[in-house]
């Protein structure tokens, strides 16, 4: 009798374990999702494929660019976040094709494509091994998504198990929002100049 009871208990135990495994199995997309690498603004963060330093975070109601002698103004109903950063590839020439801003509410904002052709923007940058390359990232977000946001940068969202640098940006008070920031041509060591107006 005790043998039968033991057998029954073993079957029940196996059923419970199988049920638990079935209901906790992660989706394939979760298994191959990006691997977070935490860092701080202003400090070097090393991912497997690249190293990144995100520096100053500029805020503006409008951005101005100059192209072939004419000035273009990009307004927004929210706020422009313009992040100055430097990155270098580690193993092979590469691009950084994914950057996101996660607001305090958890909403994700992708890179603005409105400035993707402006020199110095991450979309136009090619990162080479051993060569530090400065670049800009521009996001367009509502004003209430500024403070407490997080910057995410990765080589590509499509690469399984790629590393994603995550940098919290805790404090961005509204008094830092400029009316206009003009992005000018190369100045000194940087491929751009920024002028607040």
């Amino acid at each position: 009798m005790s043998g039968r009871l033991k057998g029954l208990a073993a079957v029940l135990f196996a059923a419970v374990v199988l049920y638990a495994m079935q209901h906790t199995t992660p989706f394939y997309s979760e298994i191959i999702s990006q691997v977070p690498v935490s860092g701080r603004l202003g400090e070097r963060v090393d991912a497997r494929d690249f190293a990144l330093v995100a520096g100053r975070v500029n805020l503006a109601r409008a951005l101005e660019t100059e192209s072939y002698g004419s000035t273009k103004t990009y307004t927004t109903s929210g706020v422009w976040i313009l992040v100055e950063a430097v990155a270098e590839a580690k193993r092979e020439s590469m691009a950084l094709t994914s950057a996101e801003w996660i607001g305090p509410s958890g909403v994700r904002y992708g890179l603005s494509q409105r400035l993707s052709n402006v020199p110095g923007m991450v979309q136009t940058a090619n990162f080479e091994p051993g060569l530090a390359m400065p670049f800009l990232m521009a996001f367009e977000v509502p004003e209430n998504e500024l403070s407490g946001g997080t910057l995410l940068v990765s080589r590509s969202l499509l690469m399984p198990l790629a590393e994603q640098v995550r940098m919290p940006v805790p404090d961005l008070p509204a008094d830092r929002i400029r009316s206009t920031i003009a992005i000018g041509p190369a100045g000194g060591e940087l491929p751009w100049t920024l002028e607040a107006k």
Binding site: S93, N126, E128
Partner: peptide, 10 residues
């Protein structure tokens, strides 16, 4: 282009 450390430049 590759170097002794295996880095690759396009």
């Amino acid at each position: 282009l590759t170097d002794a450390g295996g880095r690759r430049w396009q």
